[in-house]
């Protein structure tokens, strides 16, 4: 494991700042020094976006939970309701699981329009139906005006893993291929373009979608050759590949020209001074697969509507420093790093 210096959290005078929620190293530090310390157990130690465990009656289950605080609540291509379903379904699907049941708890600010609430719930219901999951339990809390921002939603989900499937972030091996299911950065840019203080317009829609159908096709095509999947949400492809590199103890080498990025997304990122590789996705996945099964998996993905633009973008390599290195479109080399600190507004 690479040891970088860690500034100890200051429990006497320190306060939570925005970087602690940005998906970078500051957040990793917060989780490890507060939550892992307090909750410590071997399932949490798996370090995945979901926990996978055997059930007493045989077979494996996965469980996950996620909070949604996106602002604005309605954005091009989705809303907080559909996002709260897609995000949690995807975290389950990334373990190769079949998502089954979701919970939904709402924290609503006093004064929130009832019409909007209904619209969100309807959208949530429709998204669940489309994804083939049921929302089976929930909770509602109302807080005084100013104590929340409109509405926050938290969903948890459970699913079952088919026999023989064992996906985990620590399973990438040198030589494995890295595949992304489609264009990077759409969700983050859609959110930012709809924020009032940014005065540009693009036709970018959020890619928010449930990926369990695509995952079924992938599991069927690659079976045990599939090492792992992860959805590159907060922090984008860059954060995901860095996490996986550390979990698996490998490096990655990717090729910029092979990464699908929409022109408008690239243009918007240019304007905002962002790197599309750091921008969030909500309907895309990264898969690592044994080299010999890569082409077959790619073909299966491309024949699914949510994987039509899938591409092999690189491979895992031996690297004791866990670098994610990229050959730029320009022909040089560079590192693809986590984004330091908070740069983006609330996107999920």
């Amino acid at each position: 494991m690479t040891k970088t210096f860690r500034r100890k959290l200051d429990f006497k005078a320190g306060r939570v700042d925005m970087s602690h929620g940005a998906g970078g190293r500051a957040m990793a530090e917060l989780i490890s020094s507060i939550f892992k310390d307090a909750f410590g157990n071997e399932l949490l130690e798996q370090g995945n976006d979901q926990a996978s465990f055997p059930t007493p009656s045989g077979g494996r289950m996965v469980m996950t939970t996620d909070g949604y605080v996106v602002s604005p609540i309605f954005f091009p291509g989705g809303d907080i309701g559909s996002l709260a379903v897609h995000g949690t379904v995807n975290d389950l699907a990334m373990a190769g699981a079949k998502p089954l049941y979701l919970s939904a708890s709402y924290i609503i600010e006093e004064g929130f329009p009832l019409g909007d609430l209904k619209r969100i719930a309807d959208s949530m219901g429709a998204a669940a139906k489309a994804a083939g999951v049921m929302i089976v339990t929930g909770d509602t809390k109302v807080v005084e005006r100013g104590k929340a921002d409109g509405v926050f939603i938290s969903t948890a989900g459970v699913g079952v893993v088919p026999d023989g499937i064992n996906l985990s972030g620590d399973r990438a091996r040198p030589g494995d291929k890295v595949i992304v299911s489609g264009s990077m950065g759409d969700h983050g840019v859609a959110i930012m373009s709809s924020r009032e203080n940014l005065t540009f317009e693009t036709e970018i829609l959020s890619d928010s979608a449930a990926l369990n159908g695509l995952v079924d096709a992938m599991v069927a095509a690659a079976g045990p050759h599939l090492r792992l999947m992860r959805d590159p949400t907060r922090g984008g492809l860059a954060a995901t590949l860095n996490e996986l590199a550390h979990q698996s103890g490998v490096g990655f080498r990717i090729v910029e020209d092979h990464i699908p990025i929409k022109r408008q997304v690239a243009a918007a990122c240019e304007l905002l001074g962002l790197d599309p590789l750091n921008v969030a996705n909500e309907g895309k996945l990264v898969a690592v697969v044994a080299a010999e099964a890569a082409e077959g998996l790619l073909a299966a993905m491309r024949s699914h509507p949510l994987g039509a633009e899938a591409a092999i973008i690189g491979e895992a390599v031996e690297d004791d420093q866990r670098f994610v290195q990229m050959t730029t479109g320009f022909g040089g080399g560079r590192i693809v790093d986590w984004l330091a600190g908070e740069q983006l507004p609330r996107i999920c």
């Binding site: 970088t4 210096f5 970087s19 290195q325 590192i335 790093d337 330091a340």
Partner: peptide, 28 residues
């Protein structure tokens, strides 16, 4: 001690700073 997440000096803060650029893109 000094990384973009825990910058000691200013060159490590902005992505245009010499230290941050070298750390983020070139340290390999």
């Amino acid at each position: 001690v000094c990384t973009p997440e825990t910058p000691t000096g200013a060159c490590m803060v902005s992505s245009e700073g010499a230290c941050a650029a070298h750390w983020t893109y070139g340290r390999f």
